[in-house]
Amino acid sequence: MKNRTNIRWLTQLALLVAILLVLNYTPLGYLQIGPLSASLLTVPVAIGAMTMGPTAGAILGGVFGATSFIQALEGKSAMGSALFQVSPFGTFVVCFVARVLVGLCAGLIFKALCKALPKKEKLCCFLGGLAAPVLNTAFFMGFLVLIFYNCEYVQNLAGTLGATNAFMFIVLLVGVQAIFEWVICCLVAGAVSLPVRKYLKMN
């Protein structure tokens, strides 16, 4: 029974990793809403964290972060490439470590919600779906400001945006796009996780 459970867990994890990679390397990972482009990359991370636990969330976050760091190495991300020139280790923290923490913390928050609201699983799933993109914004921007705020590239970007302090820089850089991402991930991850969790309990 334990072997069957482990195989199922690994199979589910592999499926979510595959979905994450497809979303990351194709236009499917971005939803165009008028002039805004909302990322869906935190959706598989949130689903894994809620249906498989914090460990799976951390692994999926690590995959997300690894692809982000690779894009910085390859120069496919303008910001990532610029940050890498300033500090390769700092870029690794912003891209990879931040995303591992997103998946881990999303799973822990969901577990805490389920314990606090045992009869509100549906609400917990949608709140868990919201937690992942909010944490992604918080950790990414938090590490970015902590490590790179005083470097020339970020200061030039802050000047272009008209930001006079770190908090204003975060607000102006994130903008309305982050809110769209939060709402979309909340709805999609919550809607998918709820029936998956019920199926897993039945089997």
Results as ranks from 00 to 15, higher is better:
residue 116 A to L: 12
residue 142 G to R: 06
residue 163 A to L: 04
residue 176 V to A: 15
residue 105 C to K: 01
residue 190 G to H: 08
residue 156 N to W: 01
residue 54 P to E: 08
residue 76 K to R: 13
residue 181 E to W: 11
residue 171 V to K: 14
residue 156 N to G: 03
residue 137 T to H: 13
residue 123 L to Y: 01
residue 163 A to C: 03
residue 66 A to I: 07
residue 83 L to R: 01
residue 179 I to S: 11
residue 87 S to D: 10
residue 113 L to D: 12
residue 171 V to G: 11
residue 122 K to S: 11
residue 106 A to G: 03
residue 120 K to P: 02
residue 87 S to R: 06
residue 79 M to P: 00
residue 83 L to G: 04
residue 58 A to M: 12
residue 148 F to M: 08
residue 160 T to A: 11
residue 149 Y to S: 12
residue 58 A to W: 09
residue 63 V to I: 15
residue 124 C to F: 05
residue 140 F to Q: 05
residue 86 V to P: 00
residue 94 V to P: 00
residue 49 A to Y: 06
residue 132 A to E: 06
residue 154 V to M: 12
residue 83 L to T: 00
residue 86 V to N: 01
residue 106 A to Q: 04
residue 78 A to T: 10
residue 65 G to C: 01
residue 86 V to M: 03
residue 171 V to E: 12
residue 69 F to C: 02
residue 151 C to R: 05
residue 153 Y to W: 11
residue 61 G to A: 02
residue 191 A to Q: 04
residue 148 F to K: 09
residue 162 G to T: 06
residue 118 P to Y: 07
residue 88 P to C: 06
residue 130 L to T: 12
residue 191 A to W: 00
residue 109 I to M: 12
residue 92 F to Y: 00
residue 124 C to S: 14
residue 148 F to R: 12
residue 73 L to I: 15
residue 145 V to A: 14
